[in-house]
Nucleic acid binder design. Structure first.
Lengths: 340, 340
DNA sequence: AGCGTCTTTGTAAATATTTACAAGAACGAT
DNA sequence: ATCGTTCTTGTAAATATTTACAAAGACGCT
C-alpha cells in the first residue's frame, strides 16, 4: 500500500512515467498544439496507464476560460422554459460549453445566484424567467462576462436581451378574437412586474380598446400556472355577463382555463367561448387542446443568444433583439367572420 | 489608464488595499474561520471597493471540492425528466451545490460526457434517462466520485441506483385492467435496452398471462414520445380485433394514445378502451386526461440521491434503492368489476 | 513575574495546469 | 562550413486560492 488510495494522477505523474516534461503532457491533451506524434503517443500511453484525466479547474485558472455558461431559470414548471433550457443546453454543448443551472426560489435569491455564478468564473450568464438588478448587471459588465436575458427586456440595463415581439403578438391575438366576433373579453394574466407579461397585456388591451368599450374586458391573475389558469377561468366565467373570448397570457394558463371551461363549466370552445394563449408549448398542439396561440421563437432566440455570447470584443454594445411574432391559429378560436 | 481595463481584482489586491495578509482575505470570505470582526470588516470594505469576487476555481483546486454536481439527462422532452431536474436542482442548491447539465445526443456521446464531467472535478454524477458503461463506472469509482442512476438499475455495476419498483407497478397496472374487465390488451412500449421500460413491460406481461392468453396481447413501440404514442395507438386500434385495454409504458405516450383514440378514432375512454400510463406527470392529472397511472416517486428519489452523494466514506458500498409503487386511479380505467 | 492557554494573524508551501521564452535539432541554401 | 528557418521540447513563471505551522498578543492563575 505504498500509493495513497484513490489519489488522482496529475500531469506531473504522467510526465514522470512517460519520461517527458509537464508541458509535453499539457500539449498532448491540447488539440492543435505543437507536439510530435511520437511524443503525444508516449504521453497518451502513460496517461491511460495512470487513468489520468486533465483538470479543467487548473487550466481555466490560467486560460480564464471555463467553458461554463450559467443559466438562471426561476420557473421550470412552465414547459416553455424547459424548452429553452433544452435548446440552450444542446446548442452550447455543440460549441463545447456546459450549462451550470441556477434555480433561485424568489427575487431576493437572484442576486445571490448571480454572485455565485461570478465566483465560478462562468464565460457568460443567461437569464430566463427572471431578471437582474442593475447593480449586478454593471458588476458583470465590469468583469467582462456577457449577460443575455431571454424573453424579457429592461430598457437601460447594460445587458443583451432576446425576445419575441410581445406587442405585435398581443395585437395579433386581439385582432384574431375581434375578427372572430368577440365582444366581451376576459384576460388571464400574471404578476405585472414581468415585463413580457405586461407587454402582452398592454398590447392586447390597446388593440381591444380600438374596437370595444373598456368595460367589456375584465382581467384576472392566473399566476402563470395551470391551476391558476383553471381558477381564473372559473372566476371570469361565473360573472353575471361572462366573456365570449378569453385571452390567456401564457399557454400553460390557457390549458388550465380550457379544462375548467370544458370539464367543470361544461361549455364549448370556441362556440361558447374562444380561447387563445401565448408561447406555443408542445401541449398547445396536442389534439386535446389544439390551442390557437402566438409562438415564442425558442430556436431563434437561442440562435441569437449563442452569437451574442461568442462575440469577439466581449464588452461590445448591449443588443436588444426582438423577433417577429407568429400567430398560430388552431381550433380554439372562431373563424374570421365575413366582413361586417 | 494605469490600470488594465476590466482586470478582475484578486485576493492579493484586496489584501494590499486593506493592509492585511492574503490569508486574512481568504478567512474573511470563509464563514466560521478564525478571524476578528474588526479585521473581517476591513477586508470586506476593501473587497467592496475593488468589486472583488472570490474565485471558486482556485479554491476548489486546493479543497478538492467544487460544489458542482454533474447531471446527465438524455431526454428533456419527457416532462418526468424535467421534473427530476427541477427537484434535483432545488435540493442540491439547498445544500450549496449547483447542477452542471449534460444532454448527450446518443449512446456514443455518454462516455464523452462522462469524461468531461470528470475533467470538471465534479463532486458527484447523477444519471437520468441514460446509462453508463462499466468502464466509466469503474473510472468514477477509482476517483472517488459517487455516481447515482435515477430510475434505472444495472445489476453488477458499481454505482448507486434509485428507482420505483417497476415490477410491482407493472403488476398493479395489469391487475387494475384485468379487474376492470379487460380481455384484449395493447401495450405501447419503447426501446427495450432501457431497463425501466423493459421491467415494466415484463411485469405487465407476467401478470396478464396469469389470467389471459398470450395471443390476446399485442405490443407496439411508441418511442417514448407523444407522437409515438399517438401512432402506436392508431396501429393497435386498427387491428381486426382491437384491444379493449391499452397499457402505455410512459404517461407521455399515453397522452398521445388518448388523443388518437378520442379525436382521430372517435372512441370513448374508458368505455371503448381503457388506458393506463406510468410516471404520473403533471399532465396526467389535468382535467383533459385524468389518466390512471403509476407514480414515479420523484421527490423520494431525489431525497435518496441527496443522502447517497453526501455519505461520509465516499467509496462505500453501492446501494440499489427501490421505492414502493403507488397506483393512482383516475378516469381512464373502468371501475373494478364485481367479483366474478 | 512566570507560565499555560486561547485567539488572532502572517508566512510560505501546495494545488494542477498553461505559456512565454529559450534552447536545440534538422535541413536546405549559400 | 555557416547561416537562417522551422519544428519540437523543456524550463520556469504565473494563475488565485487554502491551510499547516509558527509567532505574537491577551489574559487569568499561581
Amino acid at each position: 500500500m505504498t500509493r495513497k488510495r484513490s489519489a488522482r494522477a496529475s500531469s506531473i505523474d504522467v510526465a514522470r512515467l512517460a519520461g517527458v516534461s509537464i508541458a509535453a503532457v499539457s500539449r498532448a491533451f491540447t488539440p492543435g498544439s505543437s507536439i510530435s506524434e511520437e511524443l503525444a503517443d508516449k504521453v497518451h500511453k502513460a496517461a491511460r496507464q495512470l487513468k489520468y484525466v486533465p483538470n479543467t479547474l487548473a487550466s481555466s485558472l490560467i486560460t480564464r476560460e471555463t467553458n461554463i455558461v450559467a443559466l438562471m431559470l426561476a420557473n421550470l414548471s412552465n414547459p416553455i422554459y424547459s424548452a429553452m433550457l433544452a435548446e440552450a443546453s444542446r446548442r452550447l454543448e455543440e460549441i463545447g460549453k456546459q450549462v451550470l443551472l441556477f434555480t433561485p426560489r424568489d427575487v431576493q435569491d437572484f442576486d445571490q445566484s448571480l454572485q455565485r455564478m461570478l465566483r465560478y468564473q462562468v464565460d457568460a450568464i443567461i437569464i430566463a424567467a427572471a431578471s437582474i438588478s442593475s447593480r449586478m448587471a454593471s458588476l458583470c459588465l465590469d468583469r467582462d462576462v456577457p449577460v443575455v436575458m431571454l424573453g424579457r427586456h429592461v430598457p437601460g440595463l447594460p445587458v443583451h436581451s432576446v425576445r419575441g415581439n410581445a406587442r405585435e403578438g398581443g395585437r395579433l391575438v386581439a385582432e384574431l378574437m375581434l375578427k372572430g366576433g368577440g365582444r366581451r373579453f376576459g384576460v388571464i394574466g400574471g404578476p405585472t412586474n414581468l415585463t413580457t407579461i405586461l407587454e402582452r397585456q398592454e398590447a392586447v388591451m390597446a388593440r381591444l380598446h380600438q374596437d370595444i368599450d373598456v368595460a367589456q374586458v375584465s382581467v384576472c391573475d392566473g399566476g402563470l400556472t395551470y391551476a391558476g389558469g383553471y381558477q381564473a377561468a372559473l372566476t371570469l366565467m361565473s360573472a353575471s355577463n361572462p366573456p365570449d373570448s378569453l385571452v390567456c397570457l401564457t399557454d400553460i394558463m390557457a390549458l388550465g382555463a380550457m379544462d375548467a371551461i370544458r370539464f367543470e363549466l361544461n361549455r364549448r370552445i370556441p362556440e361558447d367561448v374562444a380561447v387563445v394563449g401565448f408561447d406555443d408549448i408542445a401541449e398547445a398542439g396536442h389534439a386535446s387542446y389544439q390551442l390557437s396561440t402566438v409562438r415564442t421563437p425558442v430556436r431563434e432566440m437561442i440562435d441569437h443568444m449563442i452569437t451574442l455570447i461568442s462575440r469577439k470584443p466581449k464588452n461590445a454594445e448591449p443588443k436588444a433583439i426582438e423577433l417577429q411574432a407568429e400567430l398560430i391559429v388552431r381550433r380554439t378560436t372562431r373563424p374570421i367572420a365575413a366582413r361586417k
